[in-house]
Write a protein that binds this DNA or RNA. Structure first.
Lengths: 85, 85
DNA sequence: ATAAAATATCAATATAGATTGATATTTTCA
DNA sequence: TGAAAATATCAATCTATATTGATATTTTAT
């Protein structure tokens, strides 16, 4: 649902997370240390972003790396772009 | 603030309102009759959309017509487009 | 096997925002 | 002037969601 994707990006911390992931993938501990927020809160926001299809993750040892799902982000943007046309 | 604009469009009824206004301006009573929602609720959502700069209004007699602020909508889209690039 | 590190989950609480009901305001028209 | 139509505002409530604290899970290393 488009609304869910929009809601996912409409939250300050989640938007920041997306910005952080824009350059390259990051593990959870890098993200929460960078944003200076509790680890479980970051986990929660990552779950929302992932649920919306905006990011994906891969496991490496004890760490979990998250990265943008650029395909879906482009899909959202083209959908929004269609709107105004 | 970008977040406010994003939040404004991230609500089902408000997104519907934007879709209705896409074709042409509408007065409040047309909108709420079309969406089958209480008048005051529509007024509230219109206020949010207007606060976010997504729509504007003009008064004609006892009616108030709302219409898209296309300039700002385009501004938002180009901002979002920049994000992925 | 045990401990430590990284992450996720869960319940509780706090907060923001949507909805409702009642009422106020503005404009027109008889 | 007074009633009706259209819209806005306000307080109350309800609901969704963000945040917090505690704990569970998973993986690695000793």
């Amino acid at each position: 649902m488009v609304i869910d994707v929009l809601k996912a990006i409409s939250e300050e911390n989640r938007l920041k997370i997306l910005c952080i992931l824009k350059k390259q993938e990051k593990c959870v501990c890098e993200i929460w240390q960078f944003l200076n927020l509790p680890q479980n809160l970051i986990s929660h926001h990552l779950k929302v972003l992932k649920g919306a299809g905006l990011i994906n993750s891969r496991k490496e040892g004890t760490k979990v790396f998250y990265f943008l799902n650029k395909k879906n982000i482009k899909r959202l943007l083209s959908l929004l772009n269609k709107f105004i046309k």
